[in-house]
Amino acid sequence: MAEYSCLVVEDSPMMRQLLVFALSRVKSLRVTEADDGVDALRKLASARYDIIVTDINMPIMDGLKLVKRVRSDPVHKETPIVIITTEGSQEDRQRALQLGANAYITKPIQAPQVISTVKELLRIE
């Protein structure tokens, strides 16, 4: 079975724990955690990830800046990015998708929704 790696970027330990908990249900997925955008870039520089799941509101570097940086990185410019945020308006969604995010999930999150979105983007059965 193919192995996929996922980088979860979330400053809240609780949400990180919840996301890791949910994504660990996907058998072929190896999950790595990052505290914020800067930590995520550090991890992206040293390893290749198949998908990134990131919060928007984070200190130091927020999720949207991270999306921009990832899209300009030749190694990860095609990597699917899932945005998770409390902002549920259509404009926020449009903005995130225009910057290069592939999917947009609003909080409070439901584990099945996160799992199905990640599976769909990775084309896992």
Binding site: M14, Q17, L18, F21, A22, R25, Q110, A111, P112, I115
Partner: peptide, 16 residues
């Protein structure tokens, strides 16, 4: 899956 998700939320909240 839904129940698991709910339990995960409760577990995480409680442990936090």
């Amino acid at each position: 899956e839904h129940e698991f998700s709910n339990l995960a939320n409760l577990f995480v909240a409680s442990s936090q």
